[in-house]
Amino acid sequence: MSKAIKILGTGCAKCQSMTKVVKEVVDENNIEATIDKIEDLMEIMEYNVMSTPALVIDDVITIKGRIPTKDEVLTLLK
C-alpha cells in the first residue's frame, strides 16, 4: 500500500535536509509513497508540532525537530 509521507517545515535548512533524506530512502528502496512538503503554517499547526521539521507518515507524527538518519526513515516506512 502506498504510504502518505508529509514533511512539515517552514522552509529552513533543516527541513530541506529532512526532505532530501526521505526522498533518497524512498527512491533507493523503491518504496511506494507520496511525499508532500507542507510549508503552510496553519496546516503545520493542525498537527500540533512545536519543533520543525516533522515527519508525518500516514498521519502519524514520527519524528520532530531533528534530521533523521536514512536507516531510521527506512525502519519507519516498513
Binding site: 517545515g9 517552514t10 522552509g11 529552513c12 533543516k14 527541513c15 503554517l41 503545520i44 499547526m45 500540533n48 508540532v49 512545536m50 519543533s51 520543525t52 525537530g65
Partner: peptide, 15 residues
Amino acid sequence: FCSCSSVPLFIGFVR
C-alpha cells in the same frame, strides 16, 4: 533554538 521553530513554538504555547 532555531528561529524557524519560533512560530510553531509560539502557537503551541498559546494553545
